[in-house]
Amino acid sequence: MAEKVRIGIVGYGNLGRGAELAVEKNPDMELAGIFTRRDPNTIQTATNANVYCQDNIRSFQDKLDVLILCGGSASDLPEMSPELARLFPIVDSYDNHAKIPDHYKKVNQAAEEAGKLAIISAGWDPGLFSLNRLLGEIVIPDGGTHTFWGKGLSQGHSEAVRRVEGVKKGVQYTVPMEEILEDARNGKGEDLTAAERHKRVCYIVADEKDHARIEEEIKTMPDYFAPYDTTVHFIDEETFDSEHQKMRHGGFVIRSGNSSKAHKQAMEFSLTLESNPEFTASVLVAYARAAYHLHKKGETGAKTPFDIPFSAMTHKTSAEIMKDLL
């Protein structure tokens, strides 16, 4: 067997734990280490992986092939991705759609200067949903694209909520408008914005004296909540722990339009996820394989999922995927 791809994971929250489990599912990979800002001695991993202090990561440059960055998009990845792209090939799941071009520019500059390769915004949205939006436009040029998220817990938006001062615990659920979802399947409503297709519902544990301020900060948060119909519920910690620990999610990308005056066509891609972080991590691990192979071929700079062929993401040979899947 060829040498295994040596993976490092930065951050050990829900996404990092999912990446650890996903690496274990891929026989051509091995987990070389988990890197954390917490005390490594306090971390109990799912697979008894080695845990190291993130401050020492520079000393692992000859021991790792790809880093999977499992920090949050609100404040971790904007700093972490450019910094670490100077040291290793990286993959991140940066998901603030409005700021992806700026994030790309910063990561691309860092990776190009260092001769490294970085894949950004690799998850299911952005990521797999992005690919399906593009495919729909290619195949049905005369039409409209509709993206719906949920009902489910959004990791990025939940992380943004928890960054609000005074929030002890918090989650955010994205809920599609059912009637608009059905309209999309019938070729209607392509001009609606994401905010018109969904509502956002937050459940927060916080001191009572902070409720009004926290609700206002959440509802006016740029790029995350400001354009949406957002409801904020304040609940006690016991209710939060018993009712809001599941991380189910999913959604739909629907492209509908006309191939002629006589015929309407529709394409639909959907996900139903019992664990949002585990699925997202599985996508990151697949893109980590691509980062490894493309970097070995000499490619550098930042890439998005649009730039990565599926053939670079699989451990199978071209002959195998042609025989088994074409």
Rank of each mutant, 00 (worst) to 15 (best):
A74T: 15
F240M: 10
I68W: 01
I119M: 05
A319P: 08
E196S: 02
Y224G: 04
D39R: 09
F88G: 02
L134N: 02
G187N: 01
M177R: 15
S275R: 13
V253D: 02
G33C: 06
S73W: 00
S256Y: 01
V91P: 08
Y203M: 05
G150S: 14
A19V: 15
H146A: 10
G136A: 03
E216G: 05
F148A: 11
N50L: 14
S259H: 06
N41H: 07
L117Y: 11
A46W: 00
V253M: 10
I43M: 06
H244C: 09
L15N: 05
G156C: 06
E159N: 12
V23P: 03
A302T: 01
S121G: 09
M29I: 04
K151H: 11
V91R: 01
S282A: 02
R200G: 02
D324Q: 11
D191N: 13
P126K: 13
D142H: 06
V107T: 10
R213E: 10
P309C: 05
F240K: 12
I68G: 03
D95W: 04
D236Y: 05
H198A: 08
K297G: 01
F35W: 03
V161C: 15
L128G: 09
M313W: 06
V164P: 06
Y52V: 07
I218D: 12
T36N: 08
K209C: 00
S81V: 07
A22T: 00
D125Y: 14
Q44E: 15
S154A: 05
G33R: 07
F234I: 02
F310V: 09
E320S: 13
E320Y: 07
D142K: 13
I120P: 11
A46F: 08
D39N: 12
F240I: 14
R37Q: 14
D229Y: 00
G187W: 05
A206K: 00
D307S: 00
D324R: 03
P277E: 10
F60P: 04
P89A: 03
V283W: 00
S121H: 04
T42A: 15
L77F: 04
R185D: 02
A212M: 02
M80V: 08
F60Y: 06
V51A: 08
L31S: 01
H97G: 07
A281Q: 07
M1G: 14
D191M: 10
N132A: 06
R37A: 11
S154D: 07
D241K: 13
S275W: 13
S260R: 05
A266P: 04
V161H: 07
S318A: 12
H146Q: 01
H157N: 05
P222N: 11
S275G: 11
T220E: 11
V66L: 03
K246P: 07
I68Q: 02
G16N: 13
K296T: 01
I308Y: 12
K63P: 01
A266D: 02
R185W: 02
